[in-house]
């Protein structure tokens, strides 16, 4: 019978085939394009914005979970380094961003009630940072 640690190790090894990297990128670009286009529409439906945000997060997650063409132990090590850096930076971002927002909105500009700091901001930041660091580490290996 598998012990709890073995199960967790199996889950942590979950990855999608390499072909999903391109699919995830296409999903992200399409959704990003639609989001930009919606900015020019006056009555942007809120439900659509929410769906697109979730779709973008799913697309980014697919990209981070996709294997490389040659997935060896060094690539796995670099991927985990990128996850670690992204996690630390996302925590720092979520601590610093509200303070920066507060300062900008209350001292530099006029006080605003629209200081929204959403889960989307943190998660998209974290996933983008992971992808970015992973690519940088891969190129400099």
């Amino acid at each position: 019978m598998d012990c709890e640690r073995t199960k967790i190790e199996k889950w942590s090894e979950f990855q999608l085939p390499n072909v999903w990297k391109l699919r995830g990128t296409i999903i992200c670009l399409l959704i990003f394009g639609i989001m930009i286009a919606l900015k020019f529409i006056d009555n942007e439906p809120l439900w659509l914005k929410d769906v697109l945000r979730k779709g973008l997060l799913v697309g980014l997650l697919i990209v981070t979970l996709s294997k490389e063409k040659i997935e060896d132990e060094m690539v796995t090590t670099l991927r985990f380094k990128a996850y670690t850096l992204a996690f630390i930076m996302a925590v720092m971002y979520s601590l610093i961003q509200p303070v920066a927002d507060y300062i900008v909105n209350n001292f530099i500009y006029e006080a605003s009630k629209h200081n929204d700091f959403s889960y989307f901001q943190v998660l998209s930041f974290m996933l983008i940072i992971q992808i970015m660091f992973f690519e940088i580490l891969k190129r400099n290996r």
Partner: peptide, 22 residues
């Protein structure tokens, strides 16, 4: 040994320490 060329390059340049298996 079933790795990428870049991995061999990194090992040779002492930028990466391989696992016991490798």
């Amino acid at each position: 040994i079933g790795v990428s060329r870049q991995t061999i390059n990194s090992i040779e340049a002492n930028r990466y320490v391989p696992s016991t298996v490798l």
